[in-house]
Nucleic acid binder design. Sequence first.
DNA 1: ATAGGGTTAG
Length: 607
Amino acid sequence: MVDPLTPSQHRQDTFLDHHTHIGEISESHFPFSFDPKFYISALLSCRNLTQIKQVHAQATVNGMLQNLAVANKLLYIYTQYKAIDEAYIFFGSMRERDSFSWSVMVGGFEKAGDYRNCLGTFREVIRSGVKPDNYTLPFAIRACRDTIDLQTGRVIHHIVHKFGLHLDQFVAAAIVDMYAKCGVIEDARLLFDKMPKRDLVTWTVMISAHAECGNANESLILFDRMREEGVVPDKVTMVTVVFACAKLGAMHKAKLVHDYISMKQFSLDVILGTAMIDMYAKCGSIDSAREIFDRLKEKNVVSWSAMIAAYGYHGHGRKALDLFPVMLRSGILPNQITFVSLLYACSHTGLIDEGRRIFYSMWEDYSVRPDVKHYTCMVDLLGRAGKLDEALELIDNMSVKKDEGLWGALLGACRIHGHIILAEKAAKSLLDLQPRNPGHYVLLSNIYAKAGRWEDVAKVRELMTQRRLKKTPGWTWIEVDNKTHQFSVGDKTHPRSKEIYETLKILSEKLELVGYVPDTNFVLHDVDEELKAGILYTHSEKLAIAFGLVGTSEGMPIRITKNLRICGDCHTFSKLVSEIARREIVVRDANRFHHFKEGACSCGDYW
DNA sequence: ATAGGGTTAG
């Protein structure tokens, strides 16, 4: 509502004091100025909502709101201050509206997060026959992005064509972004490729989208192409490129990007710095991550959580937990993600009592409500420790919705401890939730296999065949001399395949001498039966380690990136190799790292 | 007169 100030009150109010400089310009008119410029300047110099309302009242009294320029400015200022109710009431009272007024109103709703009304107002624009302009469109498109409303997004894209509107950089970038965030990256890319030229924001949107959907390689290719076309990246672009490197887990690329950032002298703000912490950690170097962390002048809850998580997934649980009180002392409050990171750190290192304590204190002491992710960490923590009953009790008593991650954690624990009955319960829930995920079938069949229940193994495999599900083979990457090499189970495509298998053979012989017995339970049924006999000793990560021994320079750690869970056999294998070859081996297994050094693993073999 | 893209878990 408009502030019910009387004119007489108004004239003596702060408004006068704050705008004496304006008064000087048009002194003779004040306070009954009829110069629109006067009111526009007054609106621009408002510093809070009260002042805006005062100018509003003044303009009303002097009849200046009939002037569209003044009215539009007032509307705009209201939306700038997110006073969306005031804006809308005023908008409703306007006798005359042009496309500017409509744009501002649509944009105001979007800025305030009122997407319903944003799109509602946009529909009114269309219905009232006003041609939506290139200012209105991006707002409406962003509302679709933010609500992941692909259907409406497509309709608006269509409208652009139907009205024969010019697809300028702003509109096109908004549509590309909308498609990408709605998960149809192909459509985003199609439009992106059709654009005659793309500005920095459009490039950034596309780079970020590819990394987000798991094609980080393409992100880096686009980054190069962007620069070839003469577009100069800014800090936001660099954040998305750093994000892509983190996804890729490629240390070589990470260093190149870091060098580029230093060369171009981008300052490390919280966001870029935090992205770099994450990048180094996910590329296997926890030390470089910490270095960046220490250099950051400003740290927010995201930076702290990223560092805590990094220690956690590198198997340094204690360091992760020690960081928490330091964070609190610096005045940062933890959020849900901080607690996921802390609990995850506990589960990777086997800190059971600490985990329990944190889990119960998060709500009690920090008013952060545990969600399914926190329960999942606890199930993982308790389950790995063999406390399957306690894990199940937690699941049975929880009030938040159970998801596949939760059952997956329980199933994983059952696999380690050979708990068939519970495994079946977990697997059933999983298959109910995701009947088309082949991974669940493989896990269940592995559990049956370990228990020697071959007829059940056959049944699960039969079910997979029936449902036409195929396990996609896992890949392992290793960086050697700044090049990435890729291996799959039983792989023979690598040019140095012969050397690799020879090294593997020598290694196996040496390992057998120190008592290594390959554990074949873990490898069953990951690939077709006919391959089974041949793959027992040739997991993708074993191939990568062997290649690391053949290819890397002496003394360098062997860094390996996997996209699946490292199996028990490969874990044992890596430990022993690190001892007999006297080389550090870093393995990224899905989302945790194992540092093997002198026959031991950073996770303390609690995994 | 008006406009955009970025960080942590799983």
